[in-house]
């Protein structure tokens, strides 16, 4: 059976779902950030797939931008992690209730 577009779409769907599952259930803030990367990565896969389908470079350029934004996001996120760990001595996201009313 030839590999069709739907194979790639389902793969991206599965990867995204695993990422969402991790974000919802995990407690460690570092692993939550990694699951966010997983979700971004599955979207990049979709961009490349549709760029191949319609034969344009726009999808590739958008993936490039998305990787840049992901790098910036990880840098800021990890800075937050360091700053939270300094204050709370823990990476537990349930301890973060500074903004709770």
């Amino acid at each position: 059976m030839e590999i069709a577009v739907s194979h790639y779409v389902v793969l991206a769907c599965v990867l995204f779902a695993i990422g969402v599952y991790g974000v919802i259930t995990r407690k460690n803030i570092l692993i939550v950030l990694m699951c966010l990367e997983l979700m971004l990565n599955s979207c990049n896969l979709l961009f490349v797939v549709f760029s191949r389908l319609y034969e344009g470079a726009a999808g590739h350029v958008f993936v490039l931008m998305s990787v840049t934004v992901a790098a910036a996001e990880v840098a800021v996120g990890l800075a937050f992690v360091v700053s939270i760990y300094r204050q709370k001595e823990s990476l537990d996201i349930d301890l973060l209730k500074l903004l709770r009313g």
């Binding site: 896969l45 490349v48 590739h60 993936v63």
Partner: peptide
């Protein structure tokens, strides 16, 4: 590797260099 299969050679290189290299080293 899937990017290479989809003829996105440059994006595959970027993926390995920046994602698997730089971002994971940061983690």
């Amino acid at each position: 590797v899937l990017f290479v299969l989809l003829h996105a050679h440059f994006i595959a290189a970027i993926q390995i260099l920046i994602y698997a290299g730089a971002i994971m080293v940061l983690f």
